[in-house]
């Protein structure tokens, strides 16, 4: 189940986001990490340190690209220059799949740099799916779309968010980056049962899972990626793994970033659930064997 056509038939374990405060630790200590996720847009530059760092990371680790600005739900055509640069980066990283969000964020050439929620309409699903297919055809690798946290709902919505997600991925024939923290945040903000969402996700399309922390305010929850994962989110994660099988999992920690060890330790808690249903002998020895296998696989 976890190795499927939406994640390039890979079997990645638990990864963390590659973040600047950890660069030195990674280069000095060379920790064993199953894989790193990079924010694609941070590396869409012509040269300099970002690409140099990335190349050093690629010598030792598997990297998966995660985007924040493709805006697959935009009513207007995708930015061709953006796609062209993404494709160059795809060739550089050898990412086996690429993810971005099921959202929009730009209009008439103006960018909000936010992950704005979609109206859950058939028309929006059709347009989004068309954009995803175009991007997938151009980039020539599988795309997984991530469900976002949201704080607002539109009057025009005709279905639930999970029905919309299903509609889009079926029409686009693409994968899903299932963010269980985002499901939790949205469930609290919009008063739905997160397990209803989770149970409706087509498990066979889940390429990857995101876990993260968030911030609680008086009247809503904000997806801030600046805390450890809370128990209710781990419960959702356990359910997701039960439905999907052991799936490539990534901890997002983007603000108030603690030490590398702390972030990695938090991420590795996912192993409690990832292989909970398997016998000890069947559990992959992630830390002992993954690295050498990786380097060979990438080449």
């Amino acid at each position: 189940m976890p190795a499927n056509r939406f994640n390039g038939f890979t079997d990645y374990g638990v990864g963390i986001g590659l973040r600047v405060p950890h660069y030195q630790h990674i280069f000095d200590k060379k920790p064993v990490v199953d894989w790193f996720e990079i924010i694609s847009e941070n590396y869409l530059v012509d040269g300099g340190r970002p690409l140099h760092v990335l190349d050093q990371i690629l010598e030792r680790y598997r990297v998966v690209q995660h985007g924040v600005a493709l805006y697959l739900g935009s009513a207007q055509p995708l930015n061709r220059e953006h796609l062209r640069k993404l494709k160059q980066l795809v060739r550089r990283t050898g990412t086996r799949w690429l993810s971005d969000h099921l959202c929009w964020g730009s209009v008439d050439g103006r960018y909000t740099h936010d992950l704005l929620p979609m109206p859950y309409t058939l028309e929006a699903a059709r347009i989004t799916a068309q954009n995803i297919r175009q991007a997938q055809d151009f980039l020539e690798i599988p795309i997984a779309v991530e469900n976002v946290s949201s704080y607002a709902e539109y009057h025009v919505s005709e279905m639930t968010e999970w029905e919309f997600l299903n509609e889009v991925v079926e029409r686009a024939d693409c994968g899903i980056l299932l963010d269980v923290n985002n499901i939790y945040v949205s469930s609290r903000n919009h008063s739905f049962d997160p397990f209803d969402y989770l149970n409706s996700v087509p498990a066979e399309r889940v390429a990857q899972i995101h876990i993260a922390g968030h911030s609680k305010f008086e009247k809503y929850i904000l997806d801030t990626h600046d805390h450890p994962v809370i128990d209710p989110v781990w419960k959702l994660y356990a359910r997701a793994i039960a439905r999907c099988g052991p799936t490539a999992t990534l901890l997002e920690w983007d603000d108030n970033i603690p030490s590398f060890e702390e972030v990695h330790r938090e991420a590795l808690k996912a192993n409690r659930y990832l292989y909970a249903g398997q016998t000890a002998s069947a559990t992959p020895q992630l830390h002992a064997t993954k690295q050498p296998a990786l380097a060979g696989a990438r080449r």
């Binding site: 935009s74 009513a75 929009w104 103006r110 909000t112 109206p119 309409t121 028309e123 347009i127």
Partner: peptide, 18 residues
């Protein structure tokens, strides 16, 4: 291109960016 979706996105973006 959808005029309905585009119209909604224009209104939302304008409101968000004010």
């Amino acid at each position: 291109m959808s005029t309905n979706l585009l119209d909604l996105q224009r209104r939302m973006a304008s409101a968000v960016m004010q």
